[in-house]
Design a protein around this nucleic acid. Structure first.
Lengths: 194, 194
DNA sequence: AATGTTGGTCAACGCCTGTTGGCAACAGTA
DNA sequence: TACTGTTGCCAACAGGCGTTGACCAACATT
């Protein structure tokens, strides 16, 4: 009764496992790591807390399973160099609006060292390689990627976590109109010189 | 034995009170609200946990007393309009490097609703009025202030909390060289049009 | 010298946390 | 039917949490 050779065998508990992950994402996104208790997650998933332990080992294992991030960044080759800024900001906004995984990761990354390490990994493995191919001098890529991630994460912070009213109510297109030139500048403009 | 009419009367317990606040700031900055336990704060201040309750009522009261923020933003009148961006970014960096209060506020603002409300208050009461006086059309001030705060808070997030290596190791002057024109643009450039 | 106030310690309360092991119901197989 | 592994619930554990109140010591005031 397996799906195929590439997918894991389907188990009777698959529905429960998925319910736990969905609830975990929602609680982690809303409450952060400490206040997203296993009991609260279990209650939302309508199962017993011990099931979480059985399927995911412990709380850290649950977090690792619940927050698996693939930014799905566009390929550097198919990215017009002078459109990189706009593409990045619209892509990030789409990802943030789509579901709560990124909000969960951001909230946890701030209170939990394992979460912070996860975010550094995503920065290194997903954003940095893209910037290396877009910016003129690969040696400057880390600095430029840091500037880009600072701005984008700051936007997510004020809009989705702190909910500053002006940031939370801005239309995505207006955000893109403001940020795209800035990101483009960080990616491709010559170093301003300290 | 009072100092003067403007300062509070000095008490024998002032040293203890200060030790508690110092320890609280350090723990809140390092651990966030939930994991900064009263017991840990008391131990670091080398006093009994019950003293914290006696002097500050409860944990929320302690947080309110420990994290009283005055951004000490420059006066809008004395701020050359075309130097506003650079002034802002260097001022913010100075404040963040000076002590851990802002890091504490940022960490707590993300896990604790009271902390988030405090940050919204600082945004409204301190940054927004300044932007209103600097930017051309006061009606656009909220959006422009939101853009500025997004970028600055994002910088603090990646540099002081998540500690992305490139962001954490950047020299303040290089940060200023990159961010000053961006902030200046957000403050005074014409609306890009959505 | 007696008294009230303040600074500080100690032990405990009730609650919540992550985590564990035992037990019942069920599915698939032979 | 009997057997085996899976799914799920229940009750409990040890420990940490914020918080409280009783108690003692040092000081200031009378």
């Amino acid at each position: 009764m397996n799906q195929s050779k590439t997918t894991a065998p389907s188990r009777r508990s698959d529905a429960t496992r998925r319910a736990i992950l969905d609830a975990a994402r929602e609680r982690f996104a809303a409450d952060g790591y400490e206040r997203a208790t296993i009991r609260a997650i279990a209650q939302q998933a309508q199962i017993d807390p011990s099931m979480v332990m059985r399927y995911y080992g412990n709380k850290e294992g649950l977090f690792a399973a619940a927050v698996a991030i693939d930014l799905q960044l566009p390929d550097a080759a198919s990215l017009p160099r002078n459109e990189a800024g706009r593409t990045l900001v619209t892509h990030f906004l789409d990802m943030w609006e789509e579901n709560e995984v990124l909000t969960a990761l951001l909230r946890v990354g701030i209170t939990n060292e394992a979460g912070a390490e996860r975010m550094r990994g995503i920065f290194n493995d997903q954003l940095l390689p893209l910037v290396e191919r877009v910016c003129p001098d690969p040696e400057q890529a880390p600095v430029r990627a840091a500037l880009v991630s600072s701005h984008l994460l700051g936007l997510a912070l004020t809009r989705y976590v702190l909910r500053f009213p002006p940031a939370a109510h801005l239309h995505p297109e207006e955000i893109a109109a403001w940020l795209a030139p800035t990101l483009q500048h960080y990616l491709t403009a010559p170093h301003p010189g300290a």
